[in-house]
Structure formats: C-alpha cells, structure tokens
C-alpha cells in the first residue's frame, strides 16, 4: 500500500519556469526511495510541494490518505523534512531547537524521545551548544534530529550527505537503516549514485521536471546492466583477426586487452564461443575480468538520452 501518492503534479513558478511537468509517483510504505537527478531537475520542488513549502500549480498529493491541501494538518503531521540547505536558528541550543520542532508539530514534550534522537545522531554531548558553534556536519545532524523529533512516518531527506565527510555519511546510512527497520518510509534525493546504490530499495530518476524512470534498484541494474569482459592478452595485437569480426569487441590498452560487451539478460552471453574462437585464432590469454555497469553509468546514459532527444 502506498503511503505517498503523487498524481500528475505540476509546478510552474511565477517567473514561468516549469519545475514539475506532471509527476506521478506512488511511494510504498516502509521503502527507501532514492530520487536521482541533475541540478535543477525538480527534485527539491517535488519534495517542497509534498511538504507544503511550495504550492502546487495542479495535480494532487496525499500522504497517508490525507490530501496535502485540504487536510494539511494530518498530512504534514506524518512528514519529517531535512532540507538541503542548512537552516538553523543560530542562537538557539541544540536541545531547544530540537524540542521546538516537536512542539511545532503539536506533540507534547517528551525529553526521553529527544534524548534518544540526539544520542542516535551523536549529538548528545552537543545538546547545550548553540547551533552556530557547530561544524557543518553537526548542523546537518541537528536538522535530522529536528525532523525526527516529531516521530514522522515519512521522512524526506533532501541531499542529506551533500558536503558531508565519509564518516558522517556512513553514520547517516546507519540511521536511515534503523529508521527503515522501525517502519519509517524514506525518500532521499541525492547526487551520489553510490548512496542510492548502497541504501535504496527503489530508484527514481528525475530530469527536467519529469520522472524518467522508477524501478526496483536490483531489477533496474539487472535490466539495464551491461557487463563487459576484459581479456588481457599475452601479446598485443594490431587488429582483430577476421574470425572475431562478428563479436562486439574493442581493442584497448594498445591492443593488449580485448573488451567484450554483452547483455546479462540474454539467453546466451556468447562467452564460451568467443573464448573458443580466440584460441582458434591463436591468441593467448593472460587474465580475464568481468565488470557490471553501476547505477551511475545507467543514470548518465538515461539523462544524456533525454538531452539528445531534446536537442533532436
């Protein structure tokens, strides 16, 4: 059952810029959905609209069955938002600002819950510090703590690990995994394909205000995943023997290596026959290496395809 339902959502800003061109997206309860897309693709506008910061031009959004405009209280009460930019009241202490967020969402004071959140994010020692005294990574943790203070069922993380060091990124992935385990639905936008690959269940790709693709991460990688087989030769060849002309082969490393591209979803990969033909052509192999294309390559392919379509 989907917890967030976005139907033909459009947003045209006052200046005439069309940030969302009819996005339809159903987010399943308990999943981690990664939204990938280049800068200006509409990721932040999409999130901001669901959270109530941007008014939609048309279309509808429901969260937990509650319309975000007609029934905004019930819808927003379910949502936690960690914005991309670090926006914090500089003179407030960590403790106060996190407690404030809980109150703003209409929940009674619960110091034990806030302590749990702060400890989980390694902020407990900093609870009495003013937010302006914290490092950038710590400030981002405070933003997450604020979003978690009111026990959201749906958490939006807008570029949560942009400009964050490796250690903190791993910490955040752990927090995200814990939240998922407790049943929270998580939607994150990211530039880091590695992040989507590491933690997402499903991946959506947004470019120019449109959702180009939405698929299970594993299925996506299997469907679009091409594999390459690098065959390192004992001696370089200048050109391919005629017997190998029928294969999708490239000569790389000055003829030292043959790169064979094949599709994993095909019934036959053609590897056995290729290796036999290689031996028949008198080429000796020193080493073999297979490689599967990453989400990043899939993503770049997809986005550059739309660019080409636009140009055509």
């Amino acid at each position: 059952m989907s917890i967030v339902d976005i139907l033909d959502l459009k947003k045209v800003y006052d200046g005439g810029f069309e940030a969302l061109k009819g996005v339809t997206l159903a987010i399943e309860e308990g999943e981690i959905l990664a939204l990938l897309g280049p800068n200006g693709a509409g990721k932040t506008t999409l999130i901001s609209t669901v959270c109530g910061i941007v008014n939609p031009s048309s279309g509808s959004v429901t969260v937990g069955g509650h319309d975000i405009q007609r029934d905004f209280r019930a819808a927003r009460a379910m949502i936690g938002l960690v914005p991309q930019e670090i926006h914090l009241e500089p003179f407030e202490t960590v403790w106060n600002t996190v407690r404030y967020s809980r109150g703003l969402f209409g929940l009674p004071r619960d110091d034990a819950h806030i302590e749990t959140v702060l400890r989980q994010l390694s902020l407990w020692d900093k609870r009495k510090s003013k937010t302006m005294e914290l490092s950038g990574g710590m400030k981002r943790r405070v933003l997450i703590a604020k979003a978690l203070s009111h026990e959201p069922r749906v958490l939006f993380l807008d570029e949560p690990t942009a400009g964050v060091d490796v250690e903190l990124r791993k910490d955040m992935w752990n927090v995200v995994a814990d939240l998922k385990a407790s049943g929270v639905t998580i939607i994150l936008t990211t530039h880091y394909i590695e992040e989507a690959e590491a933690i997402a269940d499903r991946v959506g790709v947004i470019a120019k205000g449109e959702l180009l693709l939405l698929e299970e991460k594993a299925a996506l990688m299997a469907r679009m995943g091409k594999k390459t087989l690098d065959i390192e030769l004992t001696a370089p060849v200048v050109e391919l023997p005629a017997v190998l002309a029928g294969y999708d082969l490239d000569l790389i490393s000055d003829g030292q290596t043959l790169r064979y591209s094949y599709d994993t979803k095909g019934d036959r990969t053609g590897i056995t026959k290729l290796l036999a033909d290689l031996a028949a052509a008198g080429l000796q192999m020193r080493d073999l290496l297979t490689r599967q294309s990453s989400l990043e390559e899939i993503f770049v392919d997809l986005v550059s395809e739309t660019d080409q379509e636009d140009a055509a």
Binding site: C51, I53, A75, R76, E85, S101, L104, G106
Partner: peptide, 14 residues
Amino acid sequence: FIGTIFELLSAPVN
C-alpha cells in the same frame, strides 16, 4: 532571512 521559515511552512499549523 535565515531560512528556518521552512519549518513553519511544513508544520501542521495554520
């Protein structure tokens, strides 16, 4: 000015 208004706008308050 500092951007924290996002929280007021996304909170269940009228």
